[in-house]
Amino acid sequence: MSDLVARTGRHQQRYEEGYRLIAGCIPFRFRDMEQNGDDTSEKIVEVLMINSTSGPGLLFPKGGWENDETVKEAAVREAIEEAGVRGDIVHFLGYYPFKSKTLQDEFSPEGLCRAAMFALFVKEELDCWPEQSRRKRSWLTIPEAIECCRHPWMRKVLEEGFSKWHEDGMVSTINNNDD
């Protein structure tokens, strides 16, 4: 995959019951935080958000799930195209319906979308990626990300899906995926 090019167009898009099917992820990493000058450190979770190309606020990488890929492959592809990161999908966060003003078409005239969202553990930040001229990356703590999130449905993914999974012991999930 040396030539990274963003996929465009809708001829490969998946639809189901009037919904355009979307795949996306919350890219994340751990940052060590020193504790009161002693030798212990706590791991802080940071999530990666990108700017919206259609207005203020930040969002997570997401886009159409296409016919020639699995939903996980689509989420990984979107992370590379929009945010310029590679990593491992470590957890399915859920399905989140939303309505899009910009994604109305003949198959979904009301712009109904259903996003399958995943947690993606970032292992590499690319220097060059397909949408780098249109996107800026921002690493944020979860509270900062909740504050900056452009779309209510993405805030819900972060608060209900990602944060709940994080509190329930995500580290063990990631460690078990390193096989």
Results as ranks from 00 to 15, higher is better:
residue 40 T to V: 13
residue 71 V to H: 02
residue 94 G to W: 05
residue 153 W to K: 03
residue 112 L to Y: 07
residue 127 D to K: 10
residue 119 A to H: 02
residue 16 E to K: 15
residue 179 D to T: 12
residue 23 A to G: 08
residue 177 N to D: 06
residue 135 R to M: 09
residue 122 V to I: 09
residue 146 I to L: 14
residue 112 L to A: 08
residue 107 F to Q: 08
residue 62 K to Q: 12
residue 7 R to K: 14
residue 22 I to N: 01
residue 45 V to A: 14
residue 87 G to H: 03
residue 170 M to D: 07
residue 76 V to H: 06
residue 154 M to G: 06
residue 13 Q to L: 14
residue 86 R to W: 03
residue 61 P to G: 03
residue 76 V to K: 05
residue 4 L to G: 13
residue 27 P to M: 07
residue 156 K to L: 10
residue 72 K to F: 10
residue 80 I to S: 04
residue 73 E to H: 05
residue 56 P to L: 13
residue 17 E to W: 12
residue 34 E to C: 07
residue 104 Q to K: 15
residue 53 T to R: 03
residue 90 V to R: 11
residue 142 I to T: 04
residue 165 W to Y: 15
residue 33 M to W: 11
residue 114 R to I: 09
residue 76 V to E: 07
residue 112 L to E: 08
residue 82 E to M: 07
residue 68 D to M: 11
residue 167 E to A: 15
residue 72 K to G: 03
residue 106 E to N: 15
residue 38 D to Q: 12
residue 104 Q to Y: 12
residue 4 L to S: 13
residue 74 A to F: 01
residue 8 T to H: 13
residue 18 G to K: 05
residue 127 D to C: 08
residue 65 W to E: 09
residue 40 T to S: 14
residue 17 E to P: 02
residue 97 P to C: 15
residue 148 C to V: 06
residue 75 A to H: 00
residue 19 Y to P: 02
residue 60 F to H: 05
residue 148 C to A: 14
residue 163 S to L: 13
residue 50 I to P: 00
residue 55 G to I: 10
residue 169 G to C: 07
residue 139 W to N: 02
residue 174 I to L: 05
residue 173 T to F: 09
residue 21 L to W: 04
residue 6 A to W: 08
residue 111 G to A: 09
residue 90 V to Q: 05
residue 7 R to G: 10
residue 73 E to P: 02
residue 30 F to G: 04
residue 75 A to G: 06
residue 37 G to D: 07
residue 179 D to S: 12
residue 115 A to F: 01
residue 144 E to C: 01
residue 31 R to Y: 11
residue 80 I to P: 01
residue 164 K to D: 08
residue 113 C to Y: 00
residue 48 L to S: 01
residue 65 W to V: 08
residue 112 L to V: 06
residue 118 F to H: 07
residue 41 S to N: 12
residue 36 N to F: 15
residue 122 V to L: 01
residue 51 N to P: 07
residue 167 E to L: 12
residue 158 L to R: 00
residue 7 R to V: 13
residue 172 S to Y: 06
residue 139 W to V: 02
residue 112 L to Q: 09
residue 104 Q to R: 14
residue 162 F to D: 00
residue 97 P to E: 13
residue 29 R to K: 11
residue 50 I to D: 00
residue 149 C to I: 06
residue 152 P to A: 03
residue 48 L to C: 07
residue 43 K to R: 14
residue 25 C to E: 00
residue 154 M to L: 15
residue 36 N to D: 15
residue 66 E to D: 10
residue 86 R to L: 07
residue 75 A to E: 01
residue 121 F to R: 04
residue 74 A to I: 06
residue 129 W to T: 00
residue 65 W to Q: 09
residue 84 G to P: 02
residue 135 R to S: 07
residue 161 G to F: 01
residue 36 N to A: 14
residue 83 A to T: 02
residue 129 W to S: 01
residue 158 L to C: 06
residue 81 E to L: 04
residue 34 E to Y: 07
residue 26 I to R: 03
residue 77 R to N: 02
residue 95 Y to L: 15
residue 111 G to P: 05
residue 148 C to Y: 05
residue 126 L to R: 03
residue 101 K to W: 15
residue 104 Q to F: 11
residue 76 V to D: 08
residue 96 Y to A: 04
residue 178 D to L: 13
residue 83 A to M: 08
residue 135 R to N: 06
residue 6 A to M: 12
